[in-house]
């Protein structure tokens, strides 16, 4: 398991003894908060700098980032693999669409309801799959992703069949003075920040440590009293919940759902996003979101199949040379420049 050990956060300076190390850790923590605050400031100013289409694209980056945050929890932190996260994304999206379409539920309420549905579904499906090795989870999730599209088409009276459902987008309140695209962006940003904080809280708790233990050595974790199936199933349900929340925001933003938007391709794209973005790191989902949003658009000019070729090649290359993805590479570059600067 040596390849995976790299993913865990390393202490900032292992050589600094006692007090120095504590100070260094505090400094690093403070630095991290400053970076996060700067990032948030940039994120808040973005919609005022860009044309509406770009604002929409960045809104989608945030939506993907929320889904990838969930997938990261499962793949990066618990070491389990899902090839069907698009299905939970779709459950969130369709759940929200049906709530809006049938019962006129206010937009704000659809998000927790959709997330809770995805969580429950994740729990139900994770129970049989998680009792076994991770491999079977990949099989079951892939089967679910493939099964979902005909299922959505079948129950036409509820889901609108192949034609899908068209819905109203949340309107910006008058006091904000924002245009619709900007308002949607801020909604997505709010959800993304909340999801990020939630994931951070989960991972810094007892549960997060249990998941890391399961990932790094199942047998050792079990001996230490970590109930494997319980924590694995829980991680699966949580990651499904994040995907469901992302799907809900997706419906707000797009205002339209149809079965073919949630084909297996979506699940595989999400996996590609988190692998390339960086498994087990906090910036991975954001980088993955940027990757998933912008790379297909740019490469599609070359050939329809180009995004697939790039995704496939990158996934394999990343697993060979940089298992921590873009986020890991960024960290490595930062560390080596720091070392060079210190030497001078």
């Amino acid at each position: 398991m040596s390849g995976r050990a790299e993913v865990t956060e390393k202490p900032v300076r292992a050589d600094a003894p006692g007090r120095g190390r504590a100070l260094a850790r505090i400094a690093a923590g403070r630095r991290r908060w400053i970076v996060a605050a700067a990032l948030l400031a940039v994120a808040c100013s973005l919609p005022f700098q860009l044309v509406p289409f770009r604002v929409f694209q960045f809104t989608m980056v945030l939506v993907y980032a929320v889904a990838l945050l969930g997938l990261n929890l499962l793949v990066g932190h618990a070491g389990q693999i899902s090839l069907g996260h698009g299905a939970f994304f779709a459950v969130g999206a369709y759940g929200t669409a049906i709530m809006l379409d049938r019962w006129d539920v206010p937009h704000v309420l659809t998000l927790p309801a959709a997330a809770a549905t995805a969580f429950a579904l994740g729990l139900a499906l994770g129970l049989p799959a998680m009792r076994l090795r991770g491999l079977y989870l990949a099989l079951v999730t892939l089967a679910i992703a493939i099964f979902l599209v005909p299922l959505l088409k079948r129950f036409e009276s509820v889901t609108g069949g192949s034609m899908g459902l068209t819905l109203g987008k949340p309107a910006p309140p008058a006091w904000t003075g924002l245009a619709e695209d900007q308002w949607l962006y801020f909604l997505a940003l709010a959800v993304a920040v909340a999801a990020f904080l939630l994931a951070r809280g989960l991972l810094h708790s007892r549960v997060g440590r249990a998941l890391h233990a399961v990932r790094d050595n199942e047998a050792a974790a079990e001996v230490m009293g970590v109930r494997l199936s319980f924590y694995k199933t829980l991680a699966f349900a949580w990651s499904a919940m994040f995907a469901g929340a992302a799907g809900s925001v997706y419906t707000w933003v797009i205002g339209f759902v149809s079965p073919d938007s949630f084909a297996v391709t979506l699940s595989i794209t999400l996996l590609a996003g988190i692998v390339v973005g960086g498994l087990g790191s906090f910036s991975g989902p954001l980088l993955g979101g940027l990757f998933v949003m912008f790379v297909p658009g740019i490469s599609q000019d070359v050939n329809d199949a180009a995004p697939g070729v790039i995704f496939g090649l990158l996934i394999i290359t990343v697993m060979y040379v940089a298992p921590t993805g873009l986020a890991g590479l960024a960290g490595r570059v930062a560390r080596s420049t720091k070392k060079i600067l210190r030497k001078e």
Binding site: M1, G3, R4, V75, G79, Q80, I81, L83, R133, G134, L135, A138, I268, L271, A272, V275, N303, D304, A305, A306, P307, G308, V309, F311, G312, L313, L314, I315, I316, M319, Y320, P323
Partner: peptide, 27 residues
């Protein structure tokens, strides 16, 4: 190159191969 690597790594590599071969045929 991934022989003997954790199962997760190998599965991800074959999924990468899946995407690549599918797109290459389309290309």
């Amino acid at each position: 190159p991934v022989e003997g690597a954790p199962e997760l790594t190998v599965v991800i590599v074959t999924v990468g191969l899946f995407i690549f071969v599918n797109a290459a045929a389309g290309w």
